[in-house]
Nucleic acid binder design. Structure first.
Lengths: 215, 215
DNA sequence: TACGTTATTCTGTATTTGATGAATTTAATC
DNA sequence: GATTAAATTCATCAAATACAGAATAACGTA
C-alpha cells in the first residue's frame, strides 16, 4: 500500500520536511459530507451495492472528489467506519472486574453502540460487508472484536476462557444482527432495557461457564 | 413476476394444455453444473460479488445458458439455494414435544445443516446475501426462519413465547455465523459435539425463560 | 423422414462501474 | 499582489455487467 499522492490519509501529515507554504487543508466540509453520505449508503446497501458515484451524488459533490480524498472505494469505507466508531469504543465502557451483573454490563456497552444513529450506521455497514463475502482479512475480527474477546476472556478467567469469550461474542453479534441489521420483529421495536433483559440470560449462562462436562 | 418465455421455473410445467410433442427436457447435466457452480460462488463471494458470467465460466458453459435456464441472476440464486436446502429441512428434525434436552436437539438440528458440504454452501450463500444489503424481502425470515420461530414458540409456550423463540434464533444464527460463515477460531475448528456443548447453556437459558422480572 | 421442442452458442448492446489525468478555481502564506 | 498548495471540475478510459435476440445443433415424436 504505497502512499498515494492524494491526501488519502486523514491526518494532514503533521511533521513535514519542507516549510509549508500555500493553502492549508481547511475545514473541508465536503469531506465530511462525503463521509456522511458514504456511511448512510454503506449501511443501507452494503459495500458492493454502493458506488462511489452514488456517494458523490448523495453528498452533492463531484465524483472525482471521492477518489481525491480517499484514494479508492475501500478508502472511503475505511474512513467512514473508522472515523465514526473507534476500536475501543466498547472497551472503555467495560468494567475492570467481573461483578454480578457482567452480562448486563456487557450488553449495555455493546448494544449502546447501535443505539446512536451515526455509530449504528457505521456498525451496520461494517457487519454487512464483513458477512457479505470472503475476505482475506476478517473485518469484524480486526475492527475491535479481537480485543473485546481478549477483555472478556480476562474478565471471566478459567482454562477455556478464550472459547467461552468467543461464544459470548457470537451471542452479542447474533442479537445485534437480528435487531439492528435485519430489523426483525419483535426484537427491533423493543425498548433497549427490555431487549437486554431478554438477552441477558444467555450471555450470563455462557459467562458463568456452565459448560456440560466433557463427554 | 410474469412468466418468462424461458423455462425459468424448475418444474417443467407438469399440466400443460397442448399435447406435448418434440424434444423433452433431458437429463440436463449442465443445468446441475450451473447450479453447483452458482452455489459455490455465491457462498464464497456473496450475491453481488458473483457474476452470471463467472458462474458460466466455472460451470464450463456459455454465459447465455444461465439466463436461458433461470431467467436472471436472482433466479439462479433462488434455484441454487432452494434446490439444496428446503424450508423444513430443520423442522423435520425437531421433536414434537419439549423435553429436557431441547436446547441440544435444536442445536443439532440447526447446525446439522451446516455440516454437509452442499447445504452449508447454500446456507452460507443465503446468509451472506441476507445480511449484505437492505432488501424489501427479509431473506432469512422467508427462507425457513419464520416457521422455525413459530415451532420453537409452540414448543416452549408461555406469553412471550414468540419473543423468546426469536431470541433463541438469534443465538443460533450468531453461533452459526461465527463458526461457518466468518470461520472464527477457535469455534471453526471445534468438533460439532464440543461446539454444541459450548452453545447449549445460552440456548437453554433463553428457552427456560429465566427472564429478569419486568423492571 | 419431417416436424417441433429444447439445448447450446454467437453476437451484440446499453449501462454502470472504479479510476485517472489534465485543467481550473479557491484560498492561505509570503 | 505574487506564489503555491489545496479544492473542485471536466472529460474520459477500460473493464465488467446483466441481459436480449437470432441462429444453429441435438433430439424426441409423429
Amino acid at each position: 500500500m504505497a502512499v498515494s499522492k492524494s491526501p488519502a490519509d486523514s491526518t494532514p501529515a503533521a511533521g513535514g520536511g519542507q516549510p509549508r507554504t500555500g493553502r492549508r487543508p481547511g475545514e473541508n466540509s465536503t469531506r465530511a459530507a462525503i463521509l456522511k453520505a458514504a456511511r448512510e449508503l454503506f449501511a443501507e446497501l452494503g459495500f458492493a451495492g454502493t458506488s462511489t458515484r452514488a456517494i458523490a451524488r448523495k453528498a452533492g459533490v463531484d465524483p472525482a472528489l471521492v477518489h481525491h480524498f480517499f484514494g479508492n472505494k475501500e478508502g472511503v469505507f475505511a474512513a467512514a467506519v473508522r472515523e465514526t466508531v473507534s476500536t475501543d469504543t466498547v472497551l472503555d465502557k467495560l468494567p475492570e472486574t467481573a461483578g454480578e451483573n457482567l452480562a448486563e454490563e456487557l450488553l449495555r456497552a455493546f448494544l449502546g453502540l447501535w443505539e446512536e444513529r451515526e455509530t449504528a450506521e457505521a456498525m451496520v455497514a461494517l457487519y454487512r460487508t464483513a458477512v457479505a463475502a470472503n475476505s482475506t482479512t476478517n473485518l469484524l475480527h480486526d475492527a475491535g472484536m479481537a480485543p473485546l474477546i481478549e477483555r472478556i476472556a480476562k474478565l471471566i478467567g478459567g482454562r477455556d476462557a478464550k472459547a467461552r469469550a468467543t461464544m459470548v461474542c457470537s451471542q452479542l453479534i447474533g442479537v445485534a444482527l437480528l435487531r439492528y441489521v435485519l430489523r426483525l420483529e419483535p426484537l427491533a421495536s423493543m425498548s433497549l432495557p427490555r431487549f437486554i433483559r431478554y438477552s441477558a440470560p444467555a450471555v450470563r449462562a455462557t459467562l458463568s461457564g456452565e459448560i456440560a462436562p466433557a463427554r
